[in-house]
Design a binder for these strands. Structure first.
Lengths: 240, 240
DNA sequence: AAAGGCAGTTGATACAGATCAATTCGGCGG
DNA sequence: CCGCCGAATTGATCTGTATCAACTGCCTTT
């Protein structure tokens, strides 16, 4: 973990300015906000915080991808989400994180001391409303993911994952046919409630079907419509 | 759906006063709040709102149990949660519910028009903070449920469900050995990502093990410690 | 360029839980 | 009290995914 420029950075030219929590702040507030956060960088594989830890900070992801996960005592892991630039981490009840977070590849976050951040939010209901909005959006995504985990087949899971991941990257300015997958197969398996072998086989199957092409560090989405059809729970491609 | 006493009720003697959103309101605010909500009753099996519906109201559960679920186009169902007295429903993004809600047995809710409720919240940050707290608590529960759906065996799922359900009922003043199950086996199956037959077999198994006794409308928890052991992911009962 | 190592793929087999099919139980109307 | 009907249970069998095991390919180190 490396801290850079404790205060030498300005929110006004931050990359995630438009999408993150801070989108609800005006210029005067932003200037104050500058002094609250500090940029911190984590190397690939480093743990940013652990499930049992007492929450002392909020984190705003600026660059990179993180895996958010929970472990069972015997080592089984469920990844509850991947965090991308603009995502806010650290909201919790009872003062403890409810999942762990690792950097996948290098990650830069904007870290806020919980107390200072709390004071800042105190008399800014619009910021609180923005935080609430983010929490509810996440809750909604969590519900969608429950459907996937509880009721979808391996093929549907993988196709859905690829499409959703692509959509998130597109909304951050990514291309729509090349889909980078910075996480490894095990991460994908633990996200989808599958084993690494099943994920691998399903990728291969989708490739054989001409839906995707497996390339270094990701996939190329050859047939998005077909992928949608495989992801959806419709009985067949053309039934209505 | 039956509306009773549009305004003849008082928040100050509401059953869920202490646990619901309204716990953050003072007496003066409560008096104002009286005029915002109206009590509405739903019969067993009635749908309170559907996933596609535009959100026009918030609902505060006063009595009864609701199932919250999402459907796939081909009819597969995932129950994302059960709502009990004190729970707040209707928080959403983009103005649409993100799941459907049915009454299991008779249900009474306190219904608020979204616009009026929104105005009331507007200049009451403490209420907003309370709502945020509830949203984050639900998000945390959602994460726990993802672990269950993605990484736990049928036996662990059922044992975990029974313990968690009991805990919720206890916190509402229920007894701790008799656990009523107002939902049917299909509901439990759709909540746990299992089939009805697997749920039934697992209940029978737990009964054979002497962990529970299956009784009308619920179970009796004979051996809570053993149930905990089955729910947890430890390798064995006594492993170090 | 060879060697080592880890991530990913592929194959063979096992098994938990799904599916299909009766059967039993319990509440309710006549 | 009897017969009906939906919910729950139980049984037999099937199957999707896990598990166990080997192999491949790519990057890294020397």
């Amino acid at each position: 973990m490396v801290m850079i420029e404790p205060n030498g950075h300005f929110c006004s030219d931050c990359a995630v300015r438009a999408t993150a929590v801070c989108s609800s702040l005006d210029l005067a507030e932003l200037r104050e906000f500058d002094h609250l956060g500090r940029r911190v960088t984590f190397a690939a594989g480093e743990t940013v915080f652990s499930e049992e830890d007492i929450t002392t900070s909020f984190y705003n992801v600026l660059e990179g991808v993180m895996r958010l996960y929970k472990l069972l005592p015997d080592g089984r892991r469920q990844i509850v989400g991947f965090a991308l630039p603009g995502d806010l981490l650290g909201m919790n009840i009872a003062g403890r994180h409810n999942f762990s977070a690792d950097a996948i590849g290098a990650v830069t976050v904007c870290q806020f001391a919980k107390t200072a951040f709390g004071r800042f939010v105190e008399d800014r209901p619009h910021l609180l409303r923005r935080i609430n909005e983010l929490a509810i959006r996440e809750l909604s995504q969590a519900h969608d993911h429950m459907v996937l985990l509880g009721r979808r087949s391996a093929e549907e899971k993988v196709a859905t994952f690829l499409l959703n991941w692509r959509e998130r990257l597109v909304s951050l300015g990514g291309s729509s046919d090349m889909v980078p997958l910075p996480m490894n197969r095990q991460d994908i398996a633990d996200y989808l409630g599958l084993t690494i072998e099943t994920v691998s086989r399903t990728f291969t199957k989708l490739e054989r079907l001409g839906v995707i092409e497996i390339i270094q560090g990701g996939i190329s989405l050859l047939d998005p419509a077909r992928a949608e059809a495989l992801a959806a729970a419709s009985r067949s491609y053309f039934d209505f």
